[in-house]
Design a binder for these strands. Structure first.
Lengths: 245, 245
DNA sequence: CGGGTAATTGACCCGGGTCAACAGCAGTGG
DNA sequence: CCACTGCTGTTGACCCGGGTCAATTACCCG
């Protein structure tokens, strides 16, 4: 739960009371193994599930049975919208690694959403960033060639990991298989593999044993045409500093 | 302004007082010609601009100078997020037809966002739908071949037009040029043209003089693998009925 | 009737998909 | 400790949907 509060606190600024109040909404904790489905399209969940450890993804299934990932859920992210409106999911959610989840009482949490509260602002931020990311993915997938597309996604995921404090130097935990990456990027697994090899050959990244290391951030970001504006992190000194190095 | 209130009222349910209060936030009205830029990436607008007549699009520019549309703005839609958080735009906005805009005072409007108010709920709905549409676009663009992709977008735009009451029988106002369509679908204008011709030859749609006519909704929707679930309109009888016909 | 925008057509090409085989490696049970 | 099994990653050969370039042809409006 620390991960969620930390994220809210990053975007907004929570008082001690607010943090405690959020803690008070916790209902239960759960564990899911890699590959398990956390939610299916059409469901109408009445709890909020927050991923506290591990990665998941939202995905939609196409006419031909293939899946497209529409976003990644990292520690601190919720599976459901936290909104007064409750509507059925239009996509599924799947664990991409073993994950830990904290379930929260929806009504209790909603009651914290008074105008101006830290939680209200934090969630508003998070929502804007989510939308921005989807816009950037749209651009990524339609306008950038495969290698660049992959490089861009790696930049994004590294930056997001920095934000939630899950990097160590230039390395990060990276549980995605090549198939999962290809489903996010709209590429075939085969071609994704070839693109990844190009990045490795250029000594921009190294990726093995679930660890991604950025070998040359400047070069990688430039190559990917990566501009972190869309993540709306400007004015968050700790992160800016980390990324400048 | 009617278009915006009507949209909020469609998703939520506004009292007379609420409608009047929204009207009270109106600041000024403006006109923009087709092709004009309403906003640029990086700007931090402090007014809310609501399109009341005509179409616009949000777009992002790629490394090679081409643009990708990331969503369409129809009458009743706002250009800016209505959120306590104010952050800079990560995309531009361009008029796709001559458009009319009503400018609204941000602070006044925000003061209407009390928990449980019709506006709060309406905006929450709208936000969820916006996000859903982007997810569907992601799927559309990565997983569906060109003709199907186009068919799907036409289904979406027709459905959205029904929602805002801008259709007449099976026809609707449709100001998009083929270039604009191709920018939304991630296709080249040439290929878009060919795809459109296929749909015409199959007698699924007709499109000329800014009027789109759906010749066979059943067939078109089936062909496009269109499932309007993602627009979250179930339980809105007037629309369901219109679309069933 | 002229000029500019939007649509259409043909010829050619390439990024990335598909299919199929194989290698590496982790976990499992004997 | 090893053999088995299934997942993940890698490679090669071949193919096609959709891109590009370039030239016309409508269409719209003053």
């Amino acid at each position: 739960m620390y991960s969620f509060i930390n994220k809210m606190n990053f975007y907004s600024c929570l008082t001690h009371e607010e943090k405690a109040a959020i803690q008070g909404c916790v209902d239960s904790k759960h564990y899911f193994a890699k590959g398990q489905t956390l939610a299916r399209a059409g469901e109408k969940p009445d709890r909020i599930n927050i991923v506290t450890e591990g990665w998941a993804c939202r995905f939609k299934s196409a006419h031909d049975g293939t899946d497209q990932a529409i976003s990644f859920i990292l520690p601190g992210d919720q599976c459901e919208d936290i909104s007064p409106i409750q509507c059925s999911l239009d996509h599924g959610i799947r664990a991409l690694s073993d994950i830990r989840i904290t379930r929260v009482d929806r009504q209790k949490l909603l009651s914290q959403l008074t105008p101006g509260s830290g939680l209200t602002n934090g969630l508003a931020w998070a929502s804007i960033v989510d939308k921005s990311i989807m816009g950037e993915w749209l651009l990524n997938v339609t306008r950038r060639p495969a290698v660049m597309r992959l490089a861009h996604l790696l930049c994004e995921l590294f930056t997001r990991s920095v934000i939630i404090g899950r990097t160590e130097d230039n390395s990060m935990y990276f549980p995605l298989t090549q198939v999962a990456l290809s489903e996010a990027l709209g590429l075939s697994p085969v071609h994704l593999n070839r693109s990844l090899q190009l990045l490795r050959r250029r000594k921009l990244v190294s990726l093995s044993r679930k660890t991604l290391t950025i070998l040359d951030w400047q070069q990688l970001a430039e190559f990917a045409d990566f501009d972190n504006n869309y993540l709306h992190i400007s004015g968050k000194p700790p992160v800016s500093l980390r990324l400048a190095s």
